[in-house]
Structures are given as C-alpha cells and as structure tokens.
C-alpha cells in the first residue's frame, strides 16, 4: 500500500524536500510529495480478495481518508 498526502492538501514535508532538491541544483522539480509504503504478506483466496482486504485496511487504519490517498499493489 502506498499512502500519500491527498491532492490539494498542504504537504509541508514535500515542499521542504522540493526546496532541498532545488538547493542541490536539481531543477525543473514540482509537486514533491512524501508518503509512506506499507508492505505485508497476506494469506488470501485470490488476488481480488487480497485487494479487497487491503483496501479495507487502508480505509480503516493505514490511510486517513481526510488527509491521505492510497494505492494498492498486489503480487502473488
């Protein structure tokens, strides 16, 4: 699960990182966001089942729906 600050919500960490990259001479940078990556091993009947459960985990705990968006990747 990849959790990132919701689009349009203030992301002070992303802004600070953008500034730091700029001061190292990396140019042309915009829209820097800092999020978190959560990996887990899950025993599931199918990929769809795994995805559904991962989504529920994100909605209920791993991401805050007010401030964050999430993406799920399933590998078996």
């Amino acid at each position: 699960m990849r959790v990132v600050p919701r689009a349009g919500i203030l992301d002070p960490q992303g802004n600070a990182v953008a500034g730091a990259l700029g001061s190292l001479g990396f140019d042309g940078i915009s829209e820097v966001h800092v999020g978190r990556l959560i990996t887990l091993r899950l025993l599931a009947a199918s990929e769809a089942d795994a995805r559904e459960r991962a989504e529920a985990m994100c909605r209920r705990l791993l991401a805050n729906p007010v401030t964050e968006d999430f993406e799920i990747r399933v590998a078996s």
């Binding site: 960490q13 805050n64 007010v66």
Partner: peptide, 16 residues
C-alpha cells in the same frame, strides 16, 4: 479526529 468523533484531521505543522 482519527476516531471520527470530530471532523477533519491534523497534519504536520506548516513550518515543519
């Protein structure tokens, strides 16, 4: 806020 008993959320201070 996390419990949904109040609306909204609290994120990192703008100043960091």
């Amino acid at each position: 806020c996390e419990a949904g008993l109040l609306p909204g959320g609290l994120i990192r201070n703008r100043s960091l």
